[in-house]
Deep mutational scan, measured.
Amino acid sequence: QKEELKEKAKEAVKRGNKDKARELLKRAGISEEEAKKIIKKIE
């Protein structure tokens, strides 16, 4: 489940939808700070 949400978040970032990505990562139980780092890494 968590990995699936991370994959979806990756796709969202690639489409330029960072808010959606952050939302998905939060749903995966990832903190706001972690989510920001992950999104930065994907960009």
Rank of each mutant, 00 (worst) to 15 (best):
K36T: 14
E3K: 08
Q1L: 14
K37D: 12
Q1T: 14
K2Q: 12
S31A: 07
K37R: 13
K2W: 14
A12K: 01
D19Q: 09
K10V: 11
A28Y: 03
I38Y: 06
R27F: 06
K14R: 14
K14L: 14
K20L: 15
R22T: 13
G16P: 01
K26S: 13
I38D: 00
I39V: 05
L25H: 04
G29A: 00
S31G: 09
K26N: 12
V13K: 01
A21G: 01
A9Y: 04
V13R: 01
K20W: 14
K26D: 15
K40H: 14
I42K: 03
N17A: 08
G29M: 02
D19R: 09
E34I: 06
K6T: 11
D19E: 11
I39N: 00
I42L: 13
K37A: 13
S31N: 08
K37E: 14
R27W: 05
E32G: 07
E3N: 09
E3T: 08
R22I: 15
K37H: 10
A35C: 03
L25P: 15
K18P: 12
G29Y: 00
K10W: 05
E34D: 10
S31V: 04
E32H: 06
R27H: 11
E32M: 07
E7H: 08
K26T: 13
K36P: 02
K41I: 12
E32I: 07
K36R: 12
I30A: 05
E33Y: 05
K6S: 07
E11I: 08
K18I: 15
K8F: 05
K41W: 13
E4S: 11
A28K: 00
K36V: 14
Q1C: 13
K37T: 09
R22F: 15
K14D: 05
K41N: 11
K10F: 09
E23T: 00
A35H: 01
L5Q: 03
I30W: 10
K40Q: 13
E33A: 10
A28M: 07
E23D: 13
K18Y: 15
K8S: 07
E33N: 07
K18M: 14
A12Y: 06
A28F: 03
K8P: 01
E23Y: 00
A35L: 08
G29W: 00
D19W: 05
A28V: 02
A9W: 06
L5Y: 08
I39P: 00
I30H: 07
S31P: 08
E43M: 11
K36M: 14
G29R: 00
K41L: 13
E11K: 05
K41H: 10
Q1D: 13
I38S: 01
Q1K: 12
K18W: 10
E23C: 07
K6C: 13
A9S: 02
E43T: 06
L5S: 04
K41R: 12
R15S: 13
E7Y: 06
K18D: 05
I39Y: 01
R27L: 14
E11G: 04
A21V: 03
A12N: 04
K8M: 14
R22A: 12
I39C: 06
R27I: 12
A12L: 13
K14M: 12
E32D: 13
I38L: 09
Q1W: 15
E23H: 04
K14F: 05
Q1H: 12
I38A: 01
E23K: 02
L5W: 10
K14T: 07
K37M: 10
R15Q: 14
E33M: 07
L24D: 15
G16L: 02
E43A: 08
Q1F: 13
E43Y: 07
K40W: 10
L25R: 03
K40Y: 10
E7G: 06
L24Q: 06
E7K: 11
K40T: 11
D19C: 11
K14C: 11
I30M: 11
K2A: 12
L5N: 04
E43G: 06
I30V: 10
K8H: 06
A35P: 00
E34C: 10
G29P: 00
A21K: 01
K20C: 13
S31D: 10
E32Q: 07
I30L: 13
K26C: 13
K18R: 09
E11A: 09
K41A: 14
K8Y: 05
L5T: 03
K26I: 14
R22H: 13
A9H: 01
E11R: 07
E43K: 05
R15V: 09
D19L: 06
I39G: 00
A9F: 05
I39W: 00
I42Q: 05
K20M: 12
L24R: 05
G16E: 02
K26Y: 06
A12T: 03
R15E: 13
G29V: 00
K41G: 11
A9V: 14
I42C: 08
A21L: 07
R27Q: 15
A35E: 00
E4Y: 12
A28W: 03
S31E: 07
D19N: 08
R27Y: 04
L25F: 03
E34T: 05
E33W: 04
E33L: 07
I39A: 01
L24N: 07
A35Y: 04
G16F: 01
A9C: 02
E7L: 10
K20N: 07
S31K: 04
E43P: 02
R15C: 14
A28D: 02
K6D: 03
K36E: 15
V13H: 03
S31M: 05
E7S: 09
L5E: 03
K6R: 11
E43Q: 08
K37W: 04
K2I: 15
V13T: 03
G29E: 04
E4T: 10
E4M: 11
K36C: 12
K18L: 15
E33H: 08
K2L: 14
Q1Y: 13
K36A: 14
A12H: 08
A35I: 15
I30D: 01
Q1P: 09
A9E: 01
K36I: 14
K36D: 15
E11N: 06
E11Y: 00
G16V: 02
I42N: 02
A35M: 08
I42W: 15
E33V: 08
A28H: 02
V13S: 02
E4C: 14
E34A: 07
K40M: 12
G29Q: 01
K41C: 13
